[in-house]
């Protein structure tokens, strides 16, 4: 353990005189290593319990890319398993086929699932859709995240269904959620703004849960560093094309000048959801005439992506 430094700022928790490792800008709290880990675990537990995300007997498929968020998610769920009767976990990694990126994260995913003893399934775009993402994106790189997101959701749904999972846990954090709210507003996409994936509609009937939705990216990375689970991994080469990149920078600037902005955005979305009549169920459930999956029109988004260049 490193020697104490006279310049250390101390933890605000009482009684505690350990050096702080993080400052929570919106609450003004300084937390030491022990209290930061405790804070992350408490927030995770509060989110899961507050929204009744997990029920006895659930078989939960963790969407596990091997990146920082899904690593924290798998570790927190795995550590909490003894507190939930008869709940089982499995991890699903989707190999989109992104050269120079995915191989390393898959390696990290295999390492962790082997170390903690969690059942692990890997599904690839190539086996499900007949080609990898690099090939499918030719000429439409500007829509990379949209195309990848649609195909990845389908891949997860198919793999989770085959594995008999009752729920899919995804590693979306507070920053991701706030960015999605703003992106939906900027796109004028009201259905996606009010859609609650926890209900299992409209794209899959396996509900998706987001146990990290109350935790910021800083809290998650700090938690991984403090628990010895942080691993530097490459960034997706398509990130720069995404609207999310611009929204991320803009929101981070707002959060710095006005702490609490991200939580306020999510809270606004939740209020809108509570006061909005569902729009996604209009017209009833339909099946894609190409693949038979549930969709909102005649042909699902996956088949549209696979059948014609956009």
């Amino acid at each position: 353990m490193p020697a104490p430094d006279r310049r250390d700022i101390l933890c605000s928790s009482t009684p505690c005189s350990e050096p702080a490792v993080i400052w929570l800008r919106d609450s003004g709290q300084y937390l030491c290593s022990t209290h930061c880990i405790q804070h992350v675990e408490n927030l995770f537990a509060r989110t899961v319990e507050g929204q009744r995300m997990i029920a006895p007997g659930d078989r939960i498929a963790v969407a596990f890319s091997g990146g920082k968020d899904s690593t924290a998610l798998l570790l927190l769920l795995h550590a909490a398993l003894p507190t939930w009767p008869d709940v089982t976990l499995l991890a699903i990694t989707v190999d989109e086929g992104i050269a120079g990126y995915r191989d390393e994260t898959i390696h990290a995913a295999v390492d962790l699932t082997t170390r903690i003893g969690v059942e692990h399934h890997i599904v690839s775009f190539a086996s499900l859709f007949g080609g990898d993402l690099d090939a499918l994106l030719k000429g439409r790189e500007s829509r990379s995240c949209t195309v990848c997101g649609i195909l990845r959701r389908r891949a997860l749904t198919v793999a989770a269904r085959q594995a008999g999972a009752a729920k899919i846990a995804v590693g979306h954090n507070l920053d991701d959620e706030a960015q999605s709210v703003l992106m939906n507003l900027l796109r004028g996409d009201f259905p996606h703004l009010v859609q609650d994936a926890a209900s299992g509609e409209p794209e899959c009937f396996i509900p998706r849960i987001k146990p990290l939705a109350g935790l910021s990216e800083r809290e998650i990375v700090t938690y991984l560093l403090l628990t010895g689970n942080y691993r530097e991994l490459p960034e997706c080469p398509y990130t720069g094309y995404a609207l999310r990149s611009e929204v991320r920078v803009m929101l981070a600037g707002l959060e710095y000048r006005h702490p609490g902005t991200m939580k306020n955005l999510i809270s606004s979305r939740d209020t809108i959801r509570k006061n909005t009549t569902r729009v996604s169920g209009q017209g009833g459930v339909q099946r894609c005439r190409e693949c038979g999956e549930v969709c909102s029109g005649e042909i699902c988004q996956v088949c549209r992506i696979l059948s014609r260049p956009e």
């Binding site: 702080a20 490792v21 300084y30 990126y101 990216e217």
Partner: peptide
């Protein structure tokens, strides 16, 4: 690990780790 409000001075090594990551 230190909060960003901590001080740095001559002889220190400050490492900045990005948390916002695409992918």
């Amino acid at each position: 690990l230190v909060p960003e409000t901590a001080c740095a001075e001559e002889g220190d090594e400050i490492r900045i780790i990005r948390v916002a990551h695409g992918g």
